[in-house]
Amino acid sequence: MLDDRARMEAAKKEKVEQILAEFQLQEEDLKKVMRRMQKEMDRGLRLETHEEASVKMLPTYVRSTPEGSEVGDFLSLDLGGTNFRVMLVKVGEGEEGQWSVKTKHQMYSIPEDAMTGTAEMLFDYISECISDFLDKHQMKHKKLPLGFTFSFPVRHEDIDKGILLNWTKGFKASGAEGNNVVGLLRDAIKRRGDFEMDVVAMVNDTVATMISCYYEDHQCEVGMIVGTGCNACYMEEMQNVELVEGDEGRMCVNTEWGAFGDSGELDEFLLEYDRLVDESSANPGQQLYEKLIGGKYMGELVRLVLLRLVDENLLFHGEASEQLRTRGAFETRFVSQVESDTGDRKQIYNILSTLGLRPSTTDCDIVRRACESVSTRAAHMCSAGLAGVINRMRESRSEDVMRITVGVDGSVYKLHPSFKERFHASVRRLTPSCEITFIESEEGSGRGAALVSAVACKKACMLGQ
Protein backbone atom coordinates (compact mmCIF):
# COMPACT_ATOMS: atom_id res chain seq x y z
CA MET A 1 0.00 0.00 0.00
CA LEU A 2 2.80 2.35 1.01
CA ASP A 3 4.72 1.38 -2.10
CA ASP A 4 1.70 2.20 -4.26
CA ARG A 5 1.32 5.61 -2.65
CA ALA A 6 5.04 6.33 -3.00
CA ARG A 7 4.89 5.30 -6.66
CA MET A 8 1.89 7.59 -7.24
CA GLU A 9 3.68 10.52 -5.57
CA ALA A 10 6.79 9.86 -7.68
CA ALA A 11 4.69 9.69 -10.88
CA LYS A 12 2.92 12.93 -9.91
CA LYS A 13 6.24 14.72 -9.31
CA GLU A 14 7.54 13.46 -12.66
CA LYS A 15 4.51 14.92 -14.48
CA VAL A 16 5.03 18.20 -12.61
CA GLU A 17 8.67 18.29 -13.75
CA GLN A 18 7.56 17.74 -17.36
CA ILE A 19 5.30 20.80 -17.13
CA LEU A 20 7.96 22.92 -15.39
CA ALA A 21 10.63 21.88 -17.92
CA GLU A 22 9.22 24.58 -20.24
CA PHE A 23 10.93 27.17 -18.04
CA GLN A 24 14.40 25.70 -18.51
CA LEU A 25 16.67 27.65 -20.83
CA GLN A 26 19.70 25.94 -22.34
CA GLU A 27 22.99 27.83 -22.70
CA GLU A 28 22.41 28.02 -26.47
CA ASP A 29 19.03 29.70 -25.81
CA LEU A 30 20.70 32.29 -23.59
CA LYS A 31 23.39 32.97 -26.18
CA LYS A 32 20.64 33.51 -28.75
CA VAL A 33 18.88 36.01 -26.44
CA MET A 34 22.23 37.72 -25.77
CA ARG A 35 23.05 38.10 -29.48
CA ARG A 36 19.58 39.45 -30.25
CA MET A 37 19.86 41.91 -27.35
CA GLN A 38 23.22 43.14 -28.72
CA LYS A 39 21.70 43.59 -32.18
CA GLU A 40 18.83 45.66 -30.74
CA MET A 41 21.27 47.71 -28.63
CA ASP A 42 23.18 48.51 -31.79
CA ARG A 43 19.97 49.55 -33.56
CA GLY A 44 19.03 51.77 -30.61
CA LEU A 45 22.38 53.60 -30.71
CA ARG A 46 22.30 54.26 -34.46
CA LEU A 47 20.54 57.33 -35.76
CA GLU A 48 18.90 55.64 -38.75
CA THR A 49 17.42 52.71 -36.79
CA HIS A 50 16.82 54.31 -33.36
CA GLU A 51 13.13 55.04 -33.92
CA GLU A 52 12.12 51.44 -34.65
CA ALA A 53 14.55 49.76 -32.22
CA SER A 54 12.85 48.08 -29.26
CA VAL A 55 15.86 48.79 -26.99
CA LYS A 56 16.03 52.59 -27.04
CA MET A 57 19.59 53.12 -25.68
CA LEU A 58 18.80 56.61 -24.38
CA PRO A 59 21.76 58.97 -23.83
CA THR A 60 21.75 60.33 -20.25
CA TYR A 61 24.22 63.23 -20.66
CA VAL A 62 26.10 61.83 -17.67
CA ARG A 63 29.68 61.87 -18.93
CA SER A 64 31.74 62.26 -15.77
CA THR A 65 31.83 60.19 -12.66
CA PRO A 66 32.33 61.77 -9.20
CA GLU A 67 35.98 62.48 -8.43
CA GLY A 68 35.64 63.12 -4.73
CA SER A 69 36.00 66.88 -4.75
CA GLU A 70 32.36 68.01 -4.81
CA VAL A 71 31.10 69.21 -1.44
CA GLY A 72 27.86 70.69 -0.12
CA ASP A 73 24.25 69.87 0.76
CA PHE A 74 22.02 68.39 -1.93
CA LEU A 75 18.40 67.37 -1.99
CA SER A 76 17.52 64.20 -3.82
CA LEU A 77 14.13 62.90 -5.00
CA ASP A 78 13.46 59.34 -6.07
CA LEU A 79 10.32 58.46 -8.03
CA GLY A 80 10.16 55.03 -9.62
CA GLY A 81 7.29 53.13 -8.07
CA THR A 82 4.46 53.53 -5.58
CA ASN A 83 6.82 54.97 -2.98
CA PHE A 84 8.51 58.33 -3.35
CA ARG A 85 11.63 59.24 -1.38
CA VAL A 86 13.06 62.61 -0.39
CA MET A 87 16.67 62.59 0.80
CA LEU A 88 19.09 65.17 2.17
CA VAL A 89 22.64 64.29 1.15
CA LYS A 90 25.66 65.97 2.73
CA VAL A 91 28.76 65.56 0.58
CA GLY A 92 31.97 66.60 2.31
CA GLU A 93 35.52 65.85 3.38
CA GLY A 94 35.55 63.00 5.87
CA GLU A 95 38.29 61.93 8.25
CA GLU A 96 41.80 61.63 6.80
CA GLY A 97 40.76 63.63 3.76
CA GLN A 98 38.42 60.91 2.51
CA TRP A 99 35.21 61.81 0.79
CA SER A 100 32.10 61.36 2.92
CA VAL A 101 28.45 61.14 1.96
CA LYS A 102 25.86 61.36 4.74
CA THR A 103 22.13 60.96 4.17
CA LYS A 104 18.78 61.51 5.89
CA HIS A 105 15.64 60.43 4.11
CA GLN A 106 11.90 59.98 4.34
CA MET A 107 9.52 57.80 2.33
CA TYR A 108 6.10 58.98 1.16
CA SER A 109 3.59 56.70 -0.53
CA ILE A 110 1.94 57.99 -3.69
CA PRO A 111 -1.85 57.86 -3.61
CA GLU A 112 -3.60 56.08 -6.48
CA ASP A 113 -5.34 59.28 -7.65
CA ALA A 114 -1.97 61.05 -8.02
CA MET A 115 -0.55 58.12 -10.03
CA THR A 116 -3.50 57.94 -12.41
CA GLY A 117 -4.85 61.53 -12.35
CA THR A 118 -3.15 64.47 -14.05
CA ALA A 119 0.54 65.36 -14.20
CA GLU A 120 -0.28 68.53 -12.24
CA MET A 121 -1.81 66.48 -9.40
CA LEU A 122 1.21 64.15 -9.31
CA PHE A 123 3.84 66.90 -9.26
CA ASP A 124 1.84 69.03 -6.80
CA TYR A 125 1.85 66.03 -4.46
CA ILE A 126 5.62 65.61 -4.95
CA SER A 127 6.28 69.28 -4.13
CA GLU A 128 4.03 68.95 -1.06
CA CYS A 129 6.25 66.06 0.13
CA ILE A 130 9.41 68.15 -0.45
CA SER A 131 7.86 71.01 1.55
CA ASP A 132 7.02 68.64 4.41
CA PHE A 133 10.58 67.23 4.40
CA LEU A 134 12.19 70.71 4.42
CA ASP A 135 9.94 71.74 7.34
CA LYS A 136 11.00 68.69 9.35
CA HIS A 137 14.68 69.47 8.77
CA GLN A 138 14.28 73.27 9.12
CA MET A 139 15.78 73.90 5.69
CA LYS A 140 13.05 75.95 3.99
CA HIS A 141 15.32 79.01 3.98
CA LYS A 142 18.05 77.31 1.90
CA LYS A 143 17.98 77.08 -1.89
CA LEU A 144 19.49 73.63 -2.41
CA PRO A 145 20.64 71.97 -5.63
CA LEU A 146 18.27 69.08 -6.37
CA GLY A 147 18.92 65.77 -8.10
CA PHE A 148 15.88 63.87 -9.35
CA THR A 149 15.90 60.10 -9.87
CA PHE A 150 13.06 59.44 -12.30
CA SER A 151 12.82 55.80 -13.29
CA PHE A 152 10.77 55.91 -16.47
CA PRO A 153 11.82 56.07 -20.14
CA VAL A 154 13.03 59.62 -20.84
CA ARG A 155 14.67 61.15 -23.90
CA HIS A 156 17.26 63.55 -22.48
CA GLU A 157 18.13 66.79 -24.20
CA ASP A 158 20.53 67.69 -21.40
CA ILE A 159 21.33 66.57 -17.87
CA ASP A 160 18.44 68.70 -16.54
CA LYS A 161 16.00 68.33 -19.41
CA GLY A 162 14.23 65.13 -20.39
CA ILE A 163 11.01 64.28 -22.21
CA LEU A 164 8.90 61.45 -20.75
CA LEU A 165 8.39 58.91 -23.56
CA ASN A 166 5.84 56.73 -21.78
CA TRP A 167 4.77 55.77 -18.28
CA THR A 168 5.41 52.21 -17.03
CA LYS A 169 4.81 50.33 -13.74
CA GLY A 170 1.15 51.29 -13.37
CA PHE A 171 1.58 55.10 -13.65
CA LYS A 172 -0.86 56.84 -15.98
CA ALA A 173 -0.86 60.55 -14.98
CA SER A 174 -2.17 62.42 -18.03
CA GLY A 175 -0.35 65.39 -19.54
CA ALA A 176 3.15 64.14 -18.66
CA GLU A 177 4.06 62.01 -21.68
CA GLY A 178 5.82 64.13 -24.31
CA ASN A 179 6.68 66.82 -21.76
CA ASN A 180 9.86 67.88 -19.95
CA VAL A 181 9.71 66.20 -16.54
CA VAL A 182 12.05 68.71 -14.88
CA GLY A 183 9.80 71.50 -16.18
CA LEU A 184 6.75 69.83 -14.60
CA LEU A 185 8.60 69.64 -11.27
CA ARG A 186 9.82 73.26 -11.45
CA ASP A 187 6.27 74.45 -12.26
CA ALA A 188 4.84 72.58 -9.27
CA ILE A 189 7.49 74.07 -6.93
CA LYS A 190 6.66 77.53 -8.31
CA ARG A 191 2.92 76.97 -7.77
CA ARG A 192 3.53 76.20 -4.08
CA GLY A 193 5.78 79.20 -3.62
CA ASP A 194 6.91 78.31 -0.08
CA PHE A 195 10.45 77.12 -0.96
CA GLU A 196 13.01 77.45 -3.76
CA MET A 197 14.94 74.65 -5.44
CA ASP A 198 17.56 74.50 -8.14
CA VAL A 199 16.89 71.32 -10.16
CA VAL A 200 20.33 70.55 -11.60
CA ALA A 201 20.12 66.93 -12.75
CA MET A 202 17.64 64.21 -13.59
CA VAL A 203 18.78 60.60 -13.80
CA ASN A 204 17.32 57.13 -14.16
CA ASP A 205 17.57 54.75 -11.16
CA THR A 206 20.08 52.55 -13.02
CA VAL A 207 22.35 55.58 -13.55
CA ALA A 208 21.97 56.64 -9.92
CA THR A 209 22.88 53.10 -8.83
CA MET A 210 25.97 53.04 -11.05
CA ILE A 211 27.19 56.42 -9.78
CA SER A 212 26.50 55.49 -6.16
CA CYS A 213 28.50 52.26 -6.55
CA TYR A 214 31.30 54.07 -8.41
CA TYR A 215 31.85 55.90 -5.13
CA GLU A 216 32.73 52.48 -3.59
CA ASP A 217 34.57 51.03 -6.60
CA HIS A 218 35.98 53.07 -9.49
CA GLN A 219 35.64 50.14 -11.90
CA CYS A 220 31.84 50.38 -11.67
CA GLU A 221 30.65 51.24 -15.18
CA VAL A 222 27.35 49.34 -15.27
CA GLY A 223 24.22 49.96 -13.18
CA MET A 224 21.34 47.51 -13.01
CA ILE A 225 17.96 47.31 -11.28
CA VAL A 226 16.11 44.05 -10.70
CA GLY A 227 13.09 45.06 -8.65
CA THR A 228 9.51 45.86 -9.66
CA GLY A 229 10.94 46.28 -13.15
CA CYS A 230 14.30 45.50 -14.74
CA ASN A 231 16.72 47.80 -16.55
CA ALA A 232 20.43 48.57 -17.00
CA CYS A 233 22.80 51.38 -17.99
CA TYR A 234 26.52 51.41 -18.84
CA MET A 235 29.33 53.69 -20.03
CA GLU A 236 29.38 53.61 -23.85
CA GLU A 237 32.06 55.05 -26.16
CA MET A 238 30.83 58.47 -27.36
CA GLN A 239 31.68 57.60 -30.97
CA ASN A 240 28.94 54.92 -30.82
CA VAL A 241 26.27 57.25 -29.38
CA GLU A 242 24.99 58.68 -32.66
CA LEU A 243 22.13 60.60 -31.04
CA VAL A 244 24.61 62.99 -29.38
CA GLU A 245 27.31 64.98 -31.17
CA GLY A 246 30.95 64.41 -30.26
CA ASP A 247 33.28 61.41 -30.33
CA GLU A 248 35.48 61.96 -27.28
CA GLY A 249 35.23 59.96 -24.08
CA ARG A 250 32.22 58.02 -22.82
CA MET A 251 28.60 58.69 -21.92
CA CYS A 252 26.27 56.69 -19.74
CA VAL A 253 23.50 55.11 -21.82
CA ASN A 254 20.18 54.01 -20.28
CA THR A 255 19.36 50.88 -22.28
CA GLU A 256 15.63 50.66 -21.35
CA TRP A 257 16.09 46.96 -22.12
CA GLY A 258 12.76 46.07 -20.48
CA ALA A 259 11.16 46.72 -23.88
CA PHE A 260 13.33 44.09 -25.59
CA GLY A 261 11.00 41.59 -27.24
CA ASP A 262 8.39 44.17 -28.23
CA SER A 263 9.29 43.53 -31.90
CA GLY A 264 9.06 39.74 -31.61
CA GLU A 265 12.65 38.97 -30.52
CA LEU A 266 11.45 36.81 -27.62
CA ASP A 267 8.41 35.16 -29.21
CA GLU A 268 9.92 31.66 -29.32
CA PHE A 269 10.63 31.80 -25.58
CA LEU A 270 7.25 33.11 -24.39
CA LEU A 271 5.03 30.55 -22.67
CA GLU A 272 1.25 30.54 -22.29
CA TYR A 273 1.66 31.97 -18.76
CA ASP A 274 3.68 34.90 -20.16
CA ARG A 275 0.99 35.67 -22.71
CA LEU A 276 -1.69 35.67 -19.99
CA VAL A 277 0.36 38.00 -17.76
CA ASP A 278 0.96 40.32 -20.71
CA GLU A 279 -2.71 40.39 -21.78
CA SER A 280 -3.92 41.35 -18.30
CA SER A 281 -1.18 43.99 -17.74
CA ALA A 282 -1.55 47.78 -18.01
CA ASN A 283 0.62 47.76 -21.18
CA PRO A 284 -0.08 44.65 -23.34
CA GLY A 285 2.59 43.91 -25.93
CA GLN A 286 5.12 46.18 -24.22
CA GLN A 287 8.04 45.60 -21.81
CA LEU A 288 8.02 41.86 -22.61
CA TYR A 289 11.59 41.19 -21.40
CA GLU A 290 10.83 43.00 -18.13
CA LYS A 291 7.71 40.84 -17.69
CA LEU A 292 9.90 37.70 -17.67
CA ILE A 293 12.09 39.10 -14.88
CA GLY A 294 10.52 41.90 -12.82
CA GLY A 295 8.97 41.52 -9.39
CA LYS A 296 5.76 43.12 -10.62
CA TYR A 297 5.05 39.93 -12.58
CA MET A 298 6.91 37.03 -10.93
CA GLY A 299 4.26 36.12 -8.35
CA GLU A 300 1.50 36.23 -10.95
CA LEU A 301 3.47 33.88 -13.24
CA VAL A 302 3.78 31.40 -10.36
CA ARG A 303 0.04 31.67 -9.64
CA LEU A 304 -0.79 30.79 -13.26
CA VAL A 305 1.58 27.81 -13.14
CA LEU A 306 -0.09 26.58 -9.94
CA LEU A 307 -3.53 26.84 -11.58
CA ARG A 308 -2.28 24.76 -14.52
CA LEU A 309 -1.03 22.09 -12.09
CA VAL A 310 -4.41 22.14 -10.30
CA ASP A 311 -6.20 21.72 -13.64
CA GLU A 312 -3.96 18.73 -14.41
CA ASN A 313 -4.96 17.25 -11.04
CA LEU A 314 -1.36 17.38 -9.82
CA LEU A 315 -1.85 19.87 -6.97
CA PHE A 316 -4.31 20.44 -4.09
CA HIS A 317 -6.39 17.40 -5.16
CA GLY A 318 -7.34 19.28 -8.31
CA GLU A 319 -9.14 22.08 -6.44
CA ALA A 320 -8.03 25.71 -6.24
CA SER A 321 -9.32 28.14 -3.60
CA GLU A 322 -11.14 31.33 -4.54
CA GLN A 323 -8.05 33.32 -3.49
CA LEU A 324 -5.73 31.32 -5.74
CA ARG A 325 -8.05 32.04 -8.65
CA THR A 326 -7.76 35.80 -7.96
CA ARG A 327 -5.30 37.77 -10.09
CA GLY A 328 -2.37 39.11 -8.07
CA ALA A 329 -3.12 36.95 -5.01
CA PHE A 330 0.22 35.13 -5.12
CA GLU A 331 2.58 38.01 -4.36
CA THR A 332 6.19 38.08 -5.49
CA ARG A 333 7.37 38.21 -1.87
CA PHE A 334 5.73 34.78 -1.46
CA VAL A 335 8.12 33.43 -4.11
CA SER A 336 11.09 34.56 -2.00
CA GLN A 337 9.52 33.22 1.19
CA VAL A 338 8.69 29.82 -0.34
CA GLU A 339 12.26 29.44 -1.61
CA SER A 340 13.63 30.55 1.78
CA ASP A 341 11.84 27.67 3.52
CA THR A 342 14.37 25.67 5.54
CA GLY A 343 12.98 22.26 4.65
CA ASP A 344 10.31 21.81 7.34
CA ARG A 345 7.80 23.35 4.86
CA LYS A 346 6.25 25.49 7.64
CA GLN A 347 6.71 28.74 5.76
CA ILE A 348 5.22 27.27 2.57
CA TYR A 349 2.30 25.78 4.49
CA ASN A 350 1.56 29.13 6.17
CA ILE A 351 1.58 31.06 2.89
CA LEU A 352 -0.73 28.56 1.20
CA SER A 353 -3.03 28.59 4.26
CA THR A 354 -3.48 32.36 3.92
CA LEU A 355 -4.67 31.63 0.36
CA GLY A 356 -7.37 29.31 1.69
CA LEU A 357 -5.54 26.07 0.89
CA ARG A 358 -4.73 23.01 3.01
CA PRO A 359 -1.64 21.62 1.32
CA SER A 360 -0.08 18.19 1.76
CA THR A 361 3.69 17.78 2.10
CA THR A 362 3.88 16.92 -1.61
CA ASP A 363 1.83 20.03 -2.47
CA CYS A 364 4.35 22.17 -0.57
CA ASP A 365 7.24 20.58 -2.48
CA ILE A 366 5.51 21.12 -5.83
CA VAL A 367 4.78 24.80 -5.04
CA ARG A 368 8.46 25.26 -4.19
CA ARG A 369 9.49 23.72 -7.53
CA ALA A 370 7.08 26.04 -9.37
CA CYS A 371 8.62 29.07 -7.63
CA GLU A 372 12.16 27.86 -8.38
CA SER A 373 11.33 27.32 -12.05
CA VAL A 374 9.93 30.83 -12.55
CA SER A 375 12.63 32.65 -10.57
CA THR A 376 15.49 30.66 -12.13
CA ARG A 377 14.25 31.49 -15.63
CA ALA A 378 14.09 35.16 -14.56
CA ALA A 379 17.71 35.06 -13.33
CA HIS A 380 18.90 33.35 -16.52
CA MET A 381 16.98 35.68 -18.86
CA CYS A 382 18.40 38.66 -16.96
CA SER A 383 21.92 37.21 -17.24
CA ALA A 384 21.65 37.08 -21.05
CA GLY A 385 20.93 40.82 -21.14
CA LEU A 386 23.79 41.78 -18.86
CA ALA A 387 26.21 39.44 -20.65
CA GLY A 388 25.22 41.16 -23.90
CA VAL A 389 26.09 44.57 -22.43
CA ILE A 390 29.40 43.46 -20.90
CA ASN A 391 30.62 41.53 -23.96
CA ARG A 392 29.77 44.55 -26.09
CA MET A 393 31.82 46.84 -23.81
CA ARG A 394 34.82 44.48 -23.96
CA GLU A 395 34.69 44.28 -27.77
CA SER A 396 34.40 48.04 -28.26
CA ARG A 397 37.37 48.57 -25.91
CA SER A 398 39.40 45.80 -27.62
CA GLU A 399 40.41 44.32 -24.27
CA ASP A 400 41.49 40.67 -24.08
CA VAL A 401 40.27 40.38 -20.51
CA MET A 402 38.05 43.10 -19.11
CA ARG A 403 37.70 43.75 -15.40
CA ILE A 404 34.43 45.46 -14.57
CA THR A 405 32.16 46.13 -11.63
CA VAL A 406 28.36 46.09 -11.85
CA GLY A 407 26.33 48.04 -9.29
CA VAL A 408 22.95 46.44 -8.59
CA ASP A 409 19.82 47.46 -6.71
CA GLY A 410 16.24 46.23 -6.52
CA SER A 411 14.08 44.03 -4.31
CA VAL A 412 14.25 40.83 -6.41
CA TYR A 413 18.06 40.93 -6.50
CA LYS A 414 18.42 41.84 -2.83
CA LEU A 415 15.63 39.85 -1.17
CA HIS A 416 15.23 36.63 -3.15
CA PRO A 417 17.35 33.90 -1.48
CA SER A 418 18.91 32.43 -4.65
CA PHE A 419 18.36 34.90 -7.50
CA LYS A 420 21.76 36.56 -7.31
CA GLU A 421 23.75 33.30 -7.12
CA ARG A 422 21.95 31.84 -10.15
CA PHE A 423 22.25 35.15 -11.98
CA HIS A 424 25.98 35.65 -11.24
CA ALA A 425 26.87 32.08 -12.26
CA SER A 426 24.98 32.40 -15.55
CA VAL A 427 26.49 35.83 -16.40
CA ARG A 428 29.99 34.47 -15.79
CA ARG A 429 29.35 31.46 -18.05
CA LEU A 430 28.29 33.83 -20.84
CA THR A 431 31.24 36.25 -20.41
CA PRO A 432 34.34 34.00 -20.37
CA SER A 433 36.80 36.84 -21.08
CA CYS A 434 35.57 39.14 -18.32
CA GLU A 435 36.25 39.37 -14.60
CA ILE A 436 33.07 40.74 -13.06
CA THR A 437 32.53 42.07 -9.55
CA PHE A 438 28.96 42.68 -8.36
CA ILE A 439 28.25 45.21 -5.62
CA GLU A 440 24.93 46.08 -4.03
CA SER A 441 24.05 49.71 -3.90
CA GLU A 442 23.17 51.18 -0.51
CA GLU A 443 20.46 53.86 -0.83
CA GLY A 444 21.63 53.89 -4.43
CA SER A 445 19.00 55.96 -6.16
CA GLY A 446 19.03 58.90 -3.78
CA ARG A 447 22.74 59.05 -3.14
CA GLY A 448 23.55 58.56 -6.81
CA ALA A 449 21.24 61.39 -7.91
CA ALA A 450 22.89 63.70 -5.37
CA LEU A 451 26.37 62.74 -6.60
CA VAL A 452 25.33 63.40 -10.21
CA SER A 453 24.04 66.80 -9.01
CA ALA A 454 27.38 67.41 -7.29
CA VAL A 455 29.20 66.73 -10.57
CA ALA A 456 26.77 69.01 -12.45
CA CYS A 457 27.23 71.80 -9.88
CA LYS A 458 31.00 71.49 -10.01
CA LYS A 459 30.92 71.67 -13.81
CA ALA A 460 28.64 74.72 -13.72
CA CYS A 461 31.07 76.44 -11.32
CA MET A 462 34.03 75.58 -13.56
CA LEU A 463 32.18 76.97 -16.58
CA GLY A 464 31.40 80.09 -14.57
CA GLN A 465 27.63 79.64 -14.89
Results as ranks from 00 to 15, higher is better:
195 F>A: 02
331 E>N: 11
131 S>A: 10
310 V>W: 03
392 R>Q: 13
110 I>H: 06
20 L>A: 02
393 M>N: 14
58 L>C: 12
142 K>A: 15
109 S>F: 06
218 H>D: 05
388 G>E: 04
464 G>W: 11
343 G>S: 03
162 G>Q: 12
40 E>A: 05
72 G>V: 00
18 Q>H: 15
339 E>G: 00
64 S>E: 14
214 Y>V: 06
184 L>M: 07
2 L>D: 14
317 H>C: 05
257 W>I: 09
354 T>L: 13
201 A>V: 00
148 F>N: 02
77 L>N: 06
351 I>Y: 01
187 D>N: 02
185 L>N: 02
439 I>M: 08
460 A>K: 12
221 E>V: 06
327 R>E: 04
394 R>K: 02
47 L>S: 15
93 E>T: 07
97 G>E: 11
221 E>C: 08
390 I>N: 01
289 Y>A: 15
217 D>L: 01
345 R>N: 05
14 E>L: 14
382 C>R: 02
104 K>D: 08
261 G>Q: 04
221 E>Y: 03
301 L>D: 04
392 R>T: 10
280 S>V: 10
364 C>Q: 02
437 T>C: 11
426 S>K: 12
407 G>A: 11
116 T>I: 07
293 I>Q: 15
86 V>F: 07
242 E>C: 07
36 R>N: 02
41 M>S: 08
420 K>P: 11
2 L>T: 04
360 S>P: 14
27 E>Q: 15
326 T>R: 08
12 K>A: 13
7 R>V: 12
152 F>P: 14
22 E>G: 00
188 A>C: 04
172 K>G: 04
46 R>E: 15
12 K>Q: 15
186 R>C: 01
262 D>H: 13
260 F>A: 03
271 L>H: 02
431 T>L: 10
139 M>G: 07
276 L>T: 15
409 D>G: 09
57 M>P: 07
109 S>E: 12
382 C>G: 10
4 D>M: 11
291 K>Y: 14
420 K>N: 05
138 Q>P: 12
274 D>H: 04
99 W>M: 03
158 D>Y: 14
16 V>I: 15
269 F>A: 04
175 G>Q: 04
58 L>W: 11
370 A>F: 02
332 T>A: 12
147 G>I: 03
273 Y>G: 06
430 L>P: 00
158 D>F: 15
311 D>I: 06
242 E>H: 10
